[in-house]
Design a protein around this nucleic acid. Structure first.
Lengths: 230, 230
DNA sequence: TAGTGGTCTAGACCACTCA
DNA sequence: GAGTGGTCTAGACCACTAT
């Protein structure tokens, strides 16, 4: 161990964990002990261990020490795709069509989510995204105009509402869920696939300060896969 | 700003970014300047900015400074599920049945992945996971026995092969992909759903030191959703 | 209460890369 | 070449919590 760096120490600790030097679920030496062993400052060991903890391989507690996780948490991390970038990554030209863009009385599940009275109007949009001339994804969106300034001036003809929102209401919280659904009649028609075709669905709700800004369902055309590394 | 901590500084920087104090895509002040402004050590500002960079809100470059991301990367992070834990989280009892457990000549796509000759045998398994008495997920697996010691002694009757692998071959690398497929005949029969039902599919390949250990496809029963936070 | 990790500091040197 | 972030150090104090 000639180079002492938090990175090298992290790798070293990782392989020692893998080799079984310490029991699964067991304690590993304290930071001070490891610092002495590696001949570096405690800060450096701390950083290495903190990284391992973020990755879910160890659990750290004050006074309790650092333990190896019983069932190592396999965390995957990936970027929630922006449709335009996904399309352009394939080399195809991106464009979209706005199929709906109007206030509408939402189903109950939506009005609840928006904390609205049942009969209040909510802005509703449907967007069809293309890769070249092939439909790539079909998106339905409920949008809380009260949470979004300037919507009337948004360039929704030229920029997808999605991207405009990202730029205008940045850095909000959100929930996402992934699932599989059989295409209904409207969606299969939009995407040009058979009825009941299995589609990958991303359902997101975006918040800002406890106010729902928007909730969307994006149905991807059949070839779509979402990839991540463990 | 009475408390100076990397956490408080991170929050402060975050709200300053949100407020539009700096242009999207623009530079924010250098660490030394911020440290002076906040009245703390540069190390502390560094940690705050490093966290923001890990979250994908800013991009940092030596000499180039720290820039606010144009399209903030929405990263989702979630735990790759262990089927037993998923089932038990619903309150149902977990059990599984081993439907196949035998060497087999794999399709070409698998033998390539395993770097095998075309006609080499690879161990093949099919597992059906139950939540109570209801099928929950159907899993097919190719397993590289050369990469796994002790497989013959694995308690595959009582512990699912998945969990056994996690404990026996820990901390390896992996790829995952998520997609949607229409159930084929065998899968729909196993899960007790209609043919062509849309199913959520997780496809994983696990590596250790450039050797493929195992590759699996897990088909989830229709109600399944994978959730994450942004 | 004592031991552990969490964090901050002030200073230093280095690696990268923009101009 | 010069400015920026990346990292390390040695020491310090603190917060949490197991015992």
């Amino acid at each position: 161990m000639t180079t002492t760096s938090h990175h090298a120490i992290r790798e070293s600790l990782l392989s020692r964990i893998q080799s079984g030097e310490w029991e699964l679920g067991g304690l590993i030496p304290a930071e001070t002990a490891l610092a002495e062993e590696y001949g570096c400052a405690r800060t450096t060991v701390n950083r290495a261990l903190r990284t391992l903890a973020e990755q879910g391989l160890v659990v750290r507690k004050r006074k309790g020490g650092t333990r190896i996780r019983q069932n190592p948490v396999r965390q995957a991390r990936f970027n929630i795709p922006i449709v335009r970038e996904q399309v352009e990554a394939t080399g195809a030209a991106y464009r979209f069509e706005l199929l709906a863009n109007t206030p509408k009385i939402p189903p109950k599940i939506i009005s609840t989510r928006f904390q609205n009275a049942d009969r209040d109007l909510v802005h509703y949009m449907e967007t069809l995204h293309f890769a070249g001339d092939t439909p790539f994804a079909f998106e339905t969106r409920w949008l809380n105009l009260a949470g979004v300034d300037d919507f009337m001036n948004a360039p929704i003809k030229t920029m997808s509402i999605n991207e405009w929102l990202v730029k205008s209401v940045p850095f909000s919280r959100g929930d996402v869920s992934f699932s599989a659904v059989n295409a209904d009649r409207k969606t299969s028609a939009a995407l040009g696939v058979e009825n009941a075709q299995a589609l990958f669905l991303i359902d997101r709700t975006t918040w800002q300060n406890d106010t729902v800004i928007t909730t969307t369902k994006t149905f991807y055309s059949p070839a779509f896969k979402l990839n991540a590394q463990l």
